[in-house]
Nucleic acid binder design. Structure first.
Ligand code: FES
Ligand code: FES
Lengths: 146, 146
DNA sequence: TTAATAAAAGACAAAAAGATCCTTTAGTGT
DNA sequence: ACACTAAAGGATCTTTTTGTCTTTTATTAA
């Protein structure tokens, strides 16, 4: 579905936010290991995200990555558009220059609603909402293990 | 959404089928021009489709591409999986090795239904059904022009 | 103030996708 | 039979994506 960079981005940021909930600030090596991504590539991606203002970081001993708690939650669509463009959220499924309901391609009737759902998912979910889900899932597992 | 090769494939085959309806067998140059795709690349793609048995061709003067009318209609999912794999139809939106409803990623609940819709689209629509839509649309336009 | 640590920056490399071109082969129509 | 046409095959090239590595800069803890 998404390209590699986007997948690493999503998994990485959700992992960071999850650790932030636990009052930790993970570094590149730990993040890459935990989300099963190439370490150097992960570092480069996180670097860019910091430059773009989506993420904050601290250098040196005890440093790592974290989200500024004062900022609003980060919608997936914002993140993904910044990473790979909006190929998943707009554009014609048939590859026409642009999707025009008044001059639709033969896929339009069936495809446009699916694309709308993707948009709803992208604006409805945020890195924070996903991390919360994982956190709750972890708690549930711990309870069941007792 | 889909990659370039898949888009050219869809547009190309729908164009061929549309011309077949009109008892014509278009060649690579015409097809590429009409679907707005790179001529040589289009030729290479059509070649592969013939090799894979999705399409038939005739060489030499008056030659071109056509669909064997005896064969069943070609579902988009079959075609797309043969072209770019099934990244659009299966797999986890979060990039996990595989999508497992019993151990879901935080995107699963929202993403899996969208993926299911894509599957329904892919198996429900065929090159022939799309070409028929375009054909009907053309007829309607001609009538309106009167 | 120094040694250790960890992110930032950017050069470099490999692989995949996208695209072009040339030569060969098969078939058509005259 | 012959000239022409159009697909088949394959080599080559470019761009984008993915990934690695080295050097620099900032920070912290001792
Ligand atoms: S025109 Fe193709 S999806 Fe809308
Ligand atoms: S587990 Fe990720 S989409 Fe199903």
């Amino acid at each position: 579905m998404f390209n590699k960079e986007t997948e690493y981005t999503l998994r990485g940021l959700v992992y960071i936010q999850l650790q932030n909930i636990k009052n930790r600030r993970p570094g590149t090596a730990e993040i890459a290991r935990e989300i099963d991504a190439p370490p150097f590539y992960t570092a480069k991606i996180l670097q860019r995200l910091v430059r773009q203002g989506f993420l904050a970081s601290i250098k040196g001993k005890g440093g790592g990555f974290y989200f500024d708690g004062d900022k609003p939650d980060l919608p997936l669509i914002t993140l993904i558009q910044a990473t790979e463009g909006d190929r998943s959220f707009s554009g014609c499924g048939f590859g026409l220059k642009n999707c025009d309901a008044n001059n639709p391609c033969p896929l339009h009737d069936k495809y446009a609603p699916i694309r709308d759902s993707m948009n709803k998912l992208g604006s409805g979910e945020t890195i924070q909402s996903l991390a919360k889900k994982v956190y709750k899932q972890e708690l549930k597992k711990l309870k069941n293990a007792k």
